[in-house]
Write a protein that binds this DNA or RNA. Structure first.
Lengths: 216, 216
DNA sequence: TTGTGTGAACGTTTTCACAGCG
DNA sequence: CGCTGTGAAAACGTTCACACAA
């Protein structure tokens, strides 16, 4: 399939073709009228725009089950992420290979960051250690942090933090599940219909979701 | 702190107080004019609305690093989730306790679902096994699935699927990181400014994020 | 007097619809 | 003729601002 139309892509993505074309238009005019988009060229342009063509060294701090799962996660490499180092506070872990990479002790944190030019750090430590690890990462030059620990981190301006809470997605499912059960009971307001719309959708993603606070 | 104002809550959440009041108003009139919201009452009302007051038995299928991390994750219990069973295809895992719960073999899947009245399943298997596990879960009566495997699952109508891709958040960080670097280079369009706004935000969540396709 | 609850104003995003290019 | 690219219109979500209740 060398070429694809906005209509086909939109159907696959579950959105309106006009939206898709408008979105693409912000990147430039990469389509051909009467034909569609050249798949390979489009993929390249989007990849470049999203930064997938760059090499991003990342460090993972906290090599418990979650840290190990992340280290083993196949999706990283294909998106330009390279696990530069695994760091853990437990001296017993030091030297032990996880996903083929030897774990290093927290003492090395600063030198690892500097030597590898790491600007993105992943925190998978227990909640208690997260802020301290975060501070050290930032001091060593990390400017983007992905936080899996159940704490809100405070960071200086210019540093980005994104917090991932593994239970939030479950909670959204439970919310819909609850609604499936008590359908007919709670009637009417307009807002309820907005929520109900979700249930019919074929979307599988954490986008286009649920309002911050959900109506009755 | 028995009472809290919309202003205080809004500041804590990083939103506008009017939005917060409007959102709350969809749940009912739980505040007191001139005073604010009764904290305990508000927490209860929101919890009930979100389904946190219910008990949700869940099964986790695929007890590798990620499955084990999920089983150990503290955030579930506090939100009404109860891990009813851990299931893995590896016979060597059977009986081994993870997070205090003995792992059961995939053969038991159907009976576990039925005996525990499970309606929510978590898939943490390799990609290759995900669809098959999904089909069995659905056939056994599960109507909501949280999928950590890097595959899009197909399910019949009436079943909700949410896919969690651990690398997406990293990618968003990398996107902003890229932008931090090449700031002045790419100038102008209105859409760029919309993106830039994000960088100043103190938001740490996967909400209020990034358009589906990002402008140059 | 303070702070909620909410119509009305505003800004943004999505969709429509079609001119124009290949 | 088909499908992109895009102004203009419609829909939507957020914020303002104030009447009113405690």
């Amino acid at each position: 399939m060398p070429t694809v139309s906005s209509e086909e892509l939109a159907a696959a993505a579950g959105v309106n073709s006009a939206k898709l074309r408008k979105d693409f238009s912000y990147l430039g005019s990469y389509g051909t009228r009467g034909v569609g988009y050249d798949v390979e060229y489009l993929v390249y342009q989007i990849s470049r725009e999203l930064g997938l063509t760059q090499d991003w060294p990342v460090v993972i701090v906290g090599i418990g089950n979650l840290g190990a799962a992340l280290a083993n996660y196949g999706g990283f490499a294909s998106r330009g992420f390279r696990v530069a180092a695994l760091i853990d506070a437990d001296p017993a872990m030091a030297g032990k290979p996880v996903a083929g990479i030897p774990v290093q002790h927290t003492d090395e944190l600063e030198s690892i960051i500097r030597d590898n030019g790491v600007s993105i750090g992943v925190i998978a430590t227990p909640a208690g250690a997260a802020q301290q690890v975060c501070d050290r990462l930032v001091a060593a030059g990390v400017t983007s942090i992905l936080n899996f620990a159940p704490t809100v981190l405070s960071v200086p301006d210019g540093v980005d933090v994104r917090k991932v809470d593994l239970s939030i997605e479950l909670q959204i499912l439970a919310f819909h599940e609850q609604r499936k059960a008590g359908e007919e009971a709670t009637a009417g307001a307009a807002a309820v219909q907005a929520a109900a719309r979700e249930e019919t959708s074929t979307d599988q993603g954490p986008d286009g979701d649920v309002p911050a606070v959900m109506p009755a």
